[in-house]
Amino acid sequence: MNIRNANSIVTSQVSNLTNGETYYFVVSAVNTLGNESGYSNEAAKQAADLPMPTLSLMTLNRGESIGAGSVYPITWAATGAVSFKIKYSMDGGLTWKKIDKVGNVATYDWQVPAVRKNKKNCLIKIIGYDAMGKRVVKQQSSAPFTIETIRLTAPNGGESLGTNLPYNISWETRTAVPVSRVKIFLNVDGSGVTWHPIAEVNGNPGSYRWTPDVVKTKNTCLLKIVAYDENGRQVGRDMSDDYFVINRN
């Protein structure tokens, strides 16, 4: 029970009550000499009349896409909780890692993990606790969000390219880690297993002019891009979301 005196009006907060139960309260006063008064009149209150704690995620709740290694604000709105534990999952909720535990706030600047490939099945979970440290409410993302490193924008599925016709491969960089080199690969059998190198691009220009060349039409092509930092470490990768076609003209 927490008691505070504000403008001679003494208030108290009682935690860990059970809904549906009726509780009875009396108070007494103790002076500076340690003398205690008699009990006050009895007051009764049913816990079911008390508002239930609530918690709503305001960000990372609608399938957002955020950059790897960036700082992203997690925000929420809550009642009935005074501290919060924040967790994240990158496998759809199978496993969780703790981000932090914070006090009575409603936002947290998250240092997003600098993953090395896109993570498309991420979730955030917020757990709220009352003044006694009891868990009273929790909420997690209603839809998975993505932590992106690099995004292949073209060809990304459904395009029809022609042999010996120049085509602009393009991508967007989302990771906060500087990219010094990009490698581009092609798969023509739809397996996503055997990759043929197309180009190695110094820097990170965001596009590459490519001239496809096949001996016969390929209907199940995929493209992959891999980004590296100045030390040659992979900092991101992505591939076509669906097949594209290279026609033999």
Rank of each mutant, 00 (worst) to 15 (best):
S28I: 02
M239G: 10
N61D: 15
Q13L: 13
R4F: 10
L165D: 02
M132P: 01
A77T: 14
G93L: 07
L152M: 09
I150N: 00
K125G: 13
N41K: 09
S15T: 01
E21Q: 02
P113T: 08
Y23R: 08
P166D: 08
V14E: 08
S160C: 07
I3M: 12
W76F: 02
I150H: 00
A114Q: 02
S12F: 05
T173C: 00
Y88A: 07
S28H: 03
T153V: 15
P197L: 05
V201A: 12
F185K: 08
F145P: 06
N7Q: 10
G157T: 04
K97N: 14
T79M: 05
S65T: 11
V179M: 00
L50K: 08
P212Q: 10
I66V: 15
L50T: 13
D130Y: 11
T22A: 12
G92W: 09
D242K: 12
D189N: 13
N249D: 13
I9A: 05
K218R: 14
R233T: 10
L50H: 06
Y167F: 15
K134T: 15
P73R: 09
V112M: 14
G63P: 10
Y88P: 04
S56C: 06
A43Q: 09
S56T: 14
S28Q: 04
V226K: 01
I246T: 06
L186W: 14
A44M: 05
V137M: 11
I3G: 04
V215E: 08
D242C: 06
K87Q: 15
G192K: 12
D130H: 08
P51Y: 09
A47Q: 07
L165I: 00
V10N: 11
T107L: 05
G192R: 09
R116I: 00
H196C: 04
I74R: 05
K216F: 14
Y167A: 07
K97D: 12
A77P: 03
G63A: 06
A47T: 08
S70W: 11
I184P: 07
R135S: 15
E200Q: 13
S28V: 03
A77V: 09
G157H: 05
E172H: 00
T107P: 01
W195I: 10
T11F: 04
V193K: 12
I225E: 00
T220D: 15
K45T: 05
G67I: 00
W110N: 09
I124A: 06
T175K: 01
G20V: 01
N187G: 04
K138Y: 14
C221L: 08
R233I: 04
I147E: 00
Y24R: 14
T211K: 07
L55T: 02
P51R: 11
I66P: 02
P73M: 09
D213N: 15
G20R: 03
S8Q: 15
V82N: 11
G34N: 13
P166L: 10
T79W: 03
M1K: 10
G20A: 04
T163D: 10
N164C: 07
E42S: 14
V245G: 10
I169H: 05
A6L: 09
R248K: 10
S83F: 01
P178R: 03
E42Y: 03
D241C: 02
S170K: 03
